[in-house]
Write a protein that binds this DNA or RNA. Structure first.
Lengths: 230, 230
DNA sequence: CGATCAATTGACTTAGCTCAAAGCATGTGG
DNA sequence: CCACATGCTTTGAGCTAAGTCAATTGATCG
């Protein structure tokens, strides 16, 4: 909960707002593999205090492993709209501490402090712009470009690195990666192998990766310039 | 400008806010083919009063026809972030009447009425969710599914139709369609031919299309249920 | 009516998917 | 602490959908 407080815009001179927001937040711990029970009645805002998760469609007959919408990590505030709009759920990739807010009440309270509301709006406009940018780029990108783009994103998110070499552990499986990029696990694996042979990355075990040049990967990914924090 | 007023949340009891917003809005007419001059210094909110436009990257060496991010039509309020974040521009597909707002000042004023701010936020959260949904689905969809999805979207946007037969004129070229879906013009053409041969649609001239069963197309597109207004 | 550019159609190539088998991690039980 | 079993990952061999190249048809506008 403290982590959530820190994510709020500072210096608004309205500390009680933060208190009231915290008051309606419901803390929860998810163990790796757990999914957040969906709620059909109300939209939610979920703050991830710690851990990593995927937002995905539940497994269906035609898609044995649900589509992955996005990955989220500690510090993220995400909106999970109620079931009517598509039935997406939050799955814990590692143990997670999260705070759940009913969206309506959260916004009612945030309305009391326009600065908070505006900061949430600014964030979501940015996120929308990035999401659209990525969506369109994805449509045109090769498997290798997608993988490179994914790795760059993860370097930014998980290791706060946009330029040199960097190492981190991927919390998600190859299947999750493939499902998020529209590729098969085989293709994901093959592309990682190619990048490894090109000397751009090394792997250790299932999850640890070591990128030797994030900027070079960004170039392969075809990123113009703008940093995109998915 | 009247069209913009109508798009605002009603009954807020704060008509002066609307006046002030209109005061900073800059009306502009774009002729088919025109592009809105980009502004490197400030983010903008653009309201499309009338006409149709595409938000796209300017043509580059490696991409002779710029990537299309999204299509927009009368009534849409879109955010065009300043150039640093990727350099996207608004191109008129047909003659357009638009209203341009500097984002900062718009939000400053909107802050005076939390209801306006909140409604803008709610819209953008919805848009973000849809965009992500579409992004991920796109990754997994075949050319035929993408075309079907596109046609259903256009039926919703251009003819306000989600279910029966419906006819309308596409304001964008095959190239634009392809660029927005990550397909080539040839593939777009071939898929339209297939759908025509399947009896799902008819074409007349370059732009007129006549869908015989929007719901059937939605099924082909693999849309679960939720209506998506891109 | 003719010129021009968009759209269609066809032939061929290729990136990524499918099916199938073999290697490795990771976790469990002896 | 080691052996084994399970399931993730890698690798290999075709196959198919979509891209590329090229030629033709058709629509729109001067």
């Amino acid at each position: 909960m403290e982590a959530f407080r820190e994510a709020l815009p500072v210096g608004t001179g309205a500390a009680p707002i933060a208190d009231r927001l915290c008051a309606i937040g419901y803390c929860l711990h998810l163990t790796k593999g757990d999914q957040l029970a969906p709620d059909a009645h109300e939209d939610r805002l979920v703050f991830i205090a710690h851990g990593s998760a995927k937002l995905a469609a539940p497994p269906a007959a035609d898609a044995p492993s649900g589509q992955v919408l996005a990955f989220h990590f500690g510090g993220d505030m995400i909106s999970v709209l109620r079931q009517s709009d598509g039935d997406f759920r939050l799955f814990a990739l590692s143990d997670c501490d999260i705070v759940i807010f009913p969206a309506d009440r959260f916004l009612d309270i945030a309305q009391g402090d326009p600065a908070v509301l505006r900061s949430v709006l600014a964030r979501s406009l940015q996120a929308l712009h990035r999401s659209r940018t990525r969506m369109m780029q994805m449509g045109h990108k090769s498997a290798q470009q997608r993988i490179a783009d994914f790795l760059v994103s993860m370097a930014e998110r998980l290791a706060d690195c946009t330029n040199g070499p960097c190492a981190f552990a991927l919390p998600m499986s190859r299947r999750d990666i493939g499902d998020s990029l529209g590729l098969t696990i085989e293709t994901v694996s093959r592309q990682l192998t190619e990048l490894r042979e090109a000397g751009l990355l090394e792997t250790e075990g299932r999850s640890k990766v070591c990128l030797s040049d994030v900027a070079a990967l960004a170039r392969i990914a075809g990123r113009q310039s703008g940093t995109s924090t998915n």
